[in-house]
């Protein structure tokens, strides 16, 4: 899928040196910020690759896409993506993205953040952005734990997983993210593991092209904290677990896709529905009442900019 063609060196006798080859993603990544801060075998690198592939598949101009992240391991995604990118405050990526989108409706706005960021501290913003059907794509990387702060229990942690704040096992019921998203009004909802690179990319492309509020949940390994605390082996062991236990069931009822601790779980494309977006509803309402007097916000330049 990469459109970067690597030309063979003219004199084949010379060995090919890695530093002479263009990185296949250098058009889309901030190469001056690589290497990234993520742990070996973290799922985030794959998610970033899939996001780039999804953007390419959806044929979105890089200048027309903004990436907004909150705080946490996944919150660092914005900083590596070569787009207009905003690393905001904990949980507030969605309202920031809402303002950005309404101010500049030409932009596709993608929120990439973690489960704790979007569904813990930012939970209220998620349910309202979904209710409004705001034209945003949310990629939530779910590693079942607050990783950057050292492995505390999250609103997604399945019991009885061990975390640093549940040393005797988690007991609170976790959120079922696709079910929550659908019930709040999201028009596109999918879940894949970080192993499902192609399916994840396709879903991200579909989500980007779908007008309205979409969620792609990515189940991703955190070998440093979640796996180690729960004696689940390495990141590779977790990927093997996904391979053997992620059951693809497109169109599954979201009520049935809750995740238990180290049990088989359902992935797939769950919701693909039609519903007018906030912007469509707003314009329709204003036109019906104000008629010709309504002047829509065109975005872009502010009226008094130099």
């Amino acid at each position: 899928m990469s459109d970067t063609v690597t030309k063979a060196p003219e004199r084949l006798a010379e060995p090919i040196r890695a530093e002479d080859l263009p990185h296949p993603m250098e058009k889309w990544l901030r190469m001056d910020r690589i290497p990234h801060i993520w742990c070996p075998t973290c799922g985030l690198g794959t998610v970033v690759t899939a996001l780039v592939e999804g953007i390419k598949e959806a044929q979105i101009e890089p200048d027309r896409l903004a990436v907004v992240s909150g705080i946490g391991c996944t919150g660092r995604v914005a900083g590596y993506m070569k787009f207009d990118s905003f690393h905001t405050t904990h949980g507030r990526a969605l309202p920031f993205a809402t303002g950005l989108r309404l101010s500049n409706p030409k932009m596709k706005v993608v929120v990439v953040s973690g489960d704790g960021d979007i569904f813990g501290i930012g939970g209220n913003h998620f349910i309202h952005a979904a209710r409004r059907n705001m034209d945003l794509t949310v990629i939530c990387v779910n590693n079942f734990i607050y990783a950057m702060t050292g492995g505390q229990v999250a609103p997604t942690t399945p019991g009885p997983a061990n975390t640093s704040t549940t040393p005797f096992g988690a007991f609170e019921p976790p959120f079922n993210l696709p079910y929550l998203a659908e019930s709040c009004g999201a028009v596109y909802v999918a879940r894949w593991t970080s192993l499902d690179v192609r399916r994840m990319s396709h879903s991200i492309a579909k989500a980007l092209l779908k007008p309205g509020f979409s969620l792609v949940e990515i189940i991703a390994p955190c070998s440093t904290l979640y796996a180690r605390r729960n004696r689940l082996g390495s990141g590779l062991d977790l990927l093997k677990f996904y391979q053997q236990n992620a059951i693809i069931q497109n169109g599954a009822k979201t009520a049935d896709v809750g995740i238990d601790f180290q049990r088989p779980f359902i992935v797939g494309e769950f919701v693909d529905a039609e519903r007018p977006t906030w912007e469509e509803l707003m314009r329709k309402q204003m036109k019906s009442v104000l008629g010709e007097k309504f002047i829509p916000h065109e975005g872009g330049e502010c009226s008094s900019c130099e």
Partner: peptide, 10 residues
């Protein structure tokens, strides 16, 4: 948060 995003949107 929204007005910060809106400002950066122009």
């Amino acid at each position: 948060a929204a007005i910060i995003g809106a400002c950066w949107g122009g």
